[in-house]
């Protein structure tokens, strides 16, 4: 554990809790992509199956359980409790275009050919692109609520901080995993446009709206 990794995890946790808070407080999931939330739930489920097979630390297990619970809770709120507020007309990104390539790639570029390892690798690839339906939705509606913008910023920062963590681990532990690094870089690049809009608009107190 290093400071970048810790800040990354906390940023990730903050993002997930912010989203739940927003939906609960406004009693609405308007502007939130159910497809992105579904993809994240698939990501956590595929990756955290190792809760049953290996123990790393209490911190690690607790965070995994929180992420899993929160993502299933978000799906429950979006597709059941507040379903009438879900803006599915604007959530039209085809997620099979993300799932299928991620699955194929996880059979081609993977460290070890075991079911758990392929699922883990699939989750890494899918996470890298899971935000695309949400960004697509923001571009279609041309705007995002301020709290949604904070959510996206925290979620994007998490993987960017992980990149710093991997650089740090390379120097201190001589540790390098190209699968997570490349996927993490792709993931962070996808947020760049959004980061720019967030810094130039939201931080100056303006609502995030596209020109």
């Amino acid at each position: 554990m290093n400071i970048f990794r810790l800040c990354g995890d906390l940023s990730h946790l903050l993002a997930i809790l912010l989203l739940l808070f927003k939906i609960w407080k406004t009693r609405s999931c308007a502007g939130i992509s159910g497809k992105t939330q579904l993809l994240f739930t698939i990501v956590y489920t595929a990756r955290y199956l190792d809760l049953f097979t290996s123990f790393v630390s209490v911190y690690n297990s607790v965070m995994k359980i929180v992420f899993l619970t929160a993502s299933y809770g978000t799906l429950y709120l979006m597709f059941y409790k507040f379903k009438p507020t879900y803006d599915h007309n604007h959530d039209s990104f085809r997620i099979l275009y993300l799932i299928v390539p991620a699955l194929v790639l996880s059979f081609i570029i993977v460290h070890v050919y075991t079911v758990m390892e392929i699922l883990w690798t699939f989750s890494i690839y899918l996470e890298a692109v899971a935000i695309m339906p949400q960004l697509f939705m923001v571009s279609r509606t041309g705007e995002a609520e301020t709290i949604t913008s904070h959510y996206l910023f925290a979620l994007g920062s998490y993987r960017a901080l992980y990149i710093l963590n991997w650089i740090y681990r390379y120097y201190t532990e001589d540790f390098l995993d190209w699968i997570t690094i490349m996927a993490g870089i792709v993931q962070t690049i996808l947020y760049c446009d959004f980061f720019y809009l967030y810094i130039t608009k939201v931080l100056k107190g303006k609502r995030l709206s596209l020109p």
Binding site: R5, S57, K64, F67, D174, L176, I179, T180
Partner: peptide
């Protein structure tokens, strides 16, 4: 190098 170290990340 083994990727097992990555598994301690989230």
């Amino acid at each position: 190098k083994s990727n097992q170290l990555t598994k301690d990340e989230l």
